[in-house]
Amino acid sequence: MKKTVLLFALAISIISCNKTTETKEFKTAYIDTSKLMEESTEAKDIESKYKDKSKVMGSQLEVEVNRFKSEAANFKQNAMANGQAWAQQKGAELQQREQELSYAQQAMLRQLQEESGVEMDSLVSNYRKAIKDFGKEKGYDYIYGTGDVASVLYAKDSYDITKEIIKLVNDKYKSSDKKEVKPETKKEEKK
């Protein structure tokens, strides 16, 4: 009988301990991840860099495409005058060049996607670390993400810390940018 009472008392104490931990309030917040990526300076810089690179690579390819179009127009004009054998041979050459241009365009797009993907993955990784450090520093139990891939269905606006995180990552990016510039100027001075 004493064992039963002792087990009963132990069970009640365990249940009461669980209830006290369940009622603890957690400090939570959320970040609009879409807004973070849209408004962070570093993400804008990466996007701008690859738009510019795309224009440069695209203009080089455009020269080749225009040359091809010119040759195709000349082909149509000269096909009747030069005969069927010439037209078949030149037509096959033009088809091959068109296919090569298509492959070059696909390769350029793939290269841009891969390069920008690597930088964006690195950026997201750095932002996750910054958010984790921010959460620890500010004493948050949970920080949720909303945006394109929402993991929060509802949150009070007072829990939104997106602006604080944007300021944090922008300030961190600006300060790291200044640190990187100084060593380069010292190298140039040595030359």
Rank of each mutant, 00 (worst) to 15 (best):
N82V: 11
Y144E: 06
L10K: 12
T41Y: 09
N78C: 03
N74G: 05
K186Q: 05
A107H: 01
Q88A: 11
I31H: 00
K44M: 03
N74V: 08
Y103L: 15
S151F: 11
M37K: 06
A85R: 11
Y159F: 13
I165D: 02
A79E: 03
M80E: 09
G83N: 13
Q89L: 07
Y142D: 00
T28W: 06
E180Y: 13
K191Q: 05
L112I: 05
V65T: 11
Q105I: 02
A79Q: 07
D160A: 02
V181R: 15
A72N: 03
K35D: 04
V56D: 03
I31K: 02
S59G: 15
K24P: 03
G83D: 13
D177P: 07
M1F: 07
K69R: 11
D52K: 10
S176C: 05
F68Y: 13
T23V: 14
E115T: 07
S122A: 15
G83K: 09
S125T: 15
I161E: 02
Y140A: 01
A92Q: 14
Q77I: 15
Y103K: 11
E137K: 13
A85M: 14
L36K: 01
E180L: 09
K2R: 15
E98C: 09
D160W: 01
E98K: 08
S102M: 15
K182C: 12
A150C: 12
M37H: 05
Q88F: 12
A73P: 01
A79L: 07
D177E: 14
A29T: 00
K55P: 04
L10F: 15
Y30S: 01
S16I: 10
E115S: 09
N82E: 14
D148I: 14
K156A: 04
G135R: 05
G135S: 12
S122W: 12
K49L: 06
G91Y: 09
K49H: 08
T162N: 01
A72L: 04
G83W: 02
Q99P: 04
D177Y: 12
G117I: 15
I161T: 00
A9P: 03
A9T: 05
M120H: 00
T21Q: 10
K19F: 10
G83Y: 08
M1P: 04
K27E: 04
F75T: 01
M1C: 09
D157M: 00
F134H: 01
E137V: 05
K136R: 15
Y154P: 00
I161N: 02
R128L: 08
D160V: 01
M108E: 12
N170Y: 09
M37F: 13
A85H: 06
S40P: 04
K132I: 14
Q113F: 06
G58R: 03
E98R: 10
K172L: 12
A72Y: 10
K187F: 12
K132H: 12
S122R: 15
N82T: 13
D52W: 04
E38D: 13
Q96C: 10
M37G: 07
S158W: 03
V124M: 06
E115F: 07
I15L: 08
G139L: 05
V152G: 00
Y103M: 13
L109M: 10
S125Y: 07
K51N: 11
K49N: 04
S102N: 15
